[in-house]
């Protein structure tokens, strides 16, 4: 396990280095064009890399503030949204995945899931918004990121309700996308494990079916989900970008969209690096978890 962990840590570190390099390439776009073509560009990338090493991530071309500061301001909101979405994804995706992996439901599951998942995230977000306005009569103009903790601390019912309203739709949007990823990983893992010969072998040798599944199948399936943690993180971030846009959530993803439009490459580079680093970290943790749970080696 130690050797495996070290190997994975090495891969994670290499991934981070690559992400830094990619961020430097993107940040190099911010430099004024100069003569020298490729060699000038490489020089700019290297100088950006040098600045990154000194934790100098440049400044925003729009606000002139430090890019790191800009991103640091917006990233927590995105992470809050992704965390809330991940919670929803786990609450919906895991039971859904389990139900759809068992018995006859598993046969109908795949086409059913395809139909439900065919709508892109932005369509689902708009549909949720429409339902909240038409059915629940929520105010469509009420947008932004709630300060849930302050609302809870204040103890005011109306403030708490508004905070939850603000959180509910974006979190549901992100959570639905994440749930699709979670249940897919779960069903894939369950499919791979369902016909494993050990299930019958151990049962015939004397363990109860419940024991076999609890001790060996469930860890294997959960390990399968963990092995796909990076992929799940990707779908959460992707959905977060859409949810932030649709629901006016002031997060880093929407900052990225605006920065690309305004060619503010220093900020774009840093947001990209942050997202890549989080996904790579999720992959790293997921692979360790999968190995620890069931000895499964993800993407060997």
């Amino acid at each position: 396990m130690w050797r495996f962990g070290l190997r994975r840590a090495g891969r994670f570190a290499l991934g981070l280095l690559g992400a830094i390099l990619m961020a430097a390439v993107v940040a190099a776009q911010a430099a004024p064009p100069g003569k020298g073509g490729v060699s000038h560009f490489i020089g700019t990338v290297l100088s950006r890399l040098g600045e990154f090493v000194r934790f100098d991530f440049g400044s925003s071309a729009i606000t002139a503030a430090s890019a790191a500061q800009e991103v640091a301001q917006r990233l927590p909101a995105t992470l809050e949204l992704v965390a809330a979405g991940a919670l929803v994804a786990a609450l919906i995706g895991i039971p859904l995945g389990i139900v759809l992996s068992i018995g006859r439901a598993s046969r109908a599951a795949a086409p059913l899931i395809q139909i439900v998942a065919a709508a892109p995230v932005f369509c689902a977000a708009l549909a949720l918004l429409w339902l909240s306005v038409q059915v629940l009569h929520w105010d469509a103009q009420l947008q932004g990121a709630p300060d849930l903790w302050s609302a809870l601390a204040s103890g005011h019912g109306a403030a708490i309700r508004d905070a939850f309203r603000l959180l509910a739709l974006p979190a549901l949007t992100v959570g639905a996308a994440g749930a699709a990823g979670v249940q897919l990983a779960l069903r894939r893992a369950a499919n791979e494990s369902r016909d494993a010969p050990y299930r019958r072998g151990l049962r015939m040798m004397g363990l109860t079916p419940f024991e076999v599944d609890r001790l060996y199948l469930v860890p294997q399936v959960l390990a399968g989900v963990l092995a796909n943690l990076g992929e799940i993180a990707l779908s959460l971030f992707s959905a977060a970008a859409v949810a932030e846009w649709v629901f006016g959530w002031p997060g880093a993803a929407v900052l990225f969209l605006k920065s690309v439009a305004l060619h503010d490459w220093s900020v774009v580079a840093l947001v990209l690096f942050a997202f890549a680093a989080i996904t790579l970290f999720a992959e790293f943790v997921g692979s360790l978890g999968a190995r620890a749970l069931a000895g499964i080696e993800a993407n060997p």
Binding site: L234, S238, A241, A253, F275, A276
Partner: peptide, 12 residues
């Protein structure tokens, strides 16, 4: 390289 690009959501 593909792994690093794959660590960023395709949309972004």
């Amino acid at each position: 390289i593909a792994g690093i690009l794959g660590a960023i959501p395709a949309l972004l």
